[in-house]
Amino acid sequence: MILLRRIWDHDLAWSFRRSPVTVVAAALTVICVGAALLAPWASPQDPFDMAALNLSDAFTPPAWEDKGMASYPLGTDNQGRDILSTIMHGARISLGVGIAAVLFALVLGVSLGLLSGYLGGRVDAVIMRIADVQLSFPAILIALLIDGFARVALPGDRHDELAIPVLVLAIGFAGWVQYARTVRGSTMVEKEKEYVQAARVIGRRPLAIMLSHVLPNVTGPVLVIGTIHIATAIITEATLSFLGVGVPATRPSLGTLIRIGNEFLYSGEWWITVFPGLALVVLVLSVNLLGDWLRDALNPKLR
């Protein structure tokens, strides 16, 4: 109870309550994430269970249209899969890939940024030149390159199995630079502070100082970048999947659903692509708004 009270009174909570947009964004994020997490149990249908599908129900429009059916609130696709269920499962994969990619980028970027900023000299020069070069390519291109390389390197049957981990690495690798640059900058400031010198006088090793002293003091901006990056990573994944190089069609993400639905857009079955598209927009937009709010709330100077 006291803990709840303290959370409620905290500066962050206060700035949260003052921003209606953020409250709406948070609510939408919770709904999206909740629907995604609970998909296997809460979705009306298991879209991956071939036996549960009824081909004669294919192309059913949303429930409120003339030929709609109450059991398929958002209609069905060409195989008779319930759109709402595929969206819930697709969001699960999109979110999973996005979050995993962000975690990978975060760990890689924070580690390299710490090393770069703390050690300086050649290590710093090499890491930062790599970052410069990488930044001159769009993230999507880097992810495409890595994904394409993995496709060539891995035998066909292994590829489908490893498609999701490869995608996570590709998207994550395309995004480490931002973390590294931010952490490097704050590390260079922190390492000159006297508490770091005090630790050196005691005789602590550079790695110990980086992890136990510097790291806790440079994580603030990382959380903000991470939140906003989740939205970007989901978009990147959706783009790759839309282009057909992302997740395998047997485990469709929101991007895959949009691509599949796109084929039927001009024959009038708009719902197959529009609803996954809307879900993607809502998910990305609300995560993004949350990230923006977090950035402003943690650093009033940026406003």
Partner: peptide, 15 residues
């Protein structure tokens, strides 16, 4: 051992 000038920078704020 050493004692530093700036009492605000010489202690890790997260510890």
């Amino acid at each position: 051992q050493m004692i530093f000038q700036d009492p605000y920078a010489s202690l890790n704020p997260r510890w």
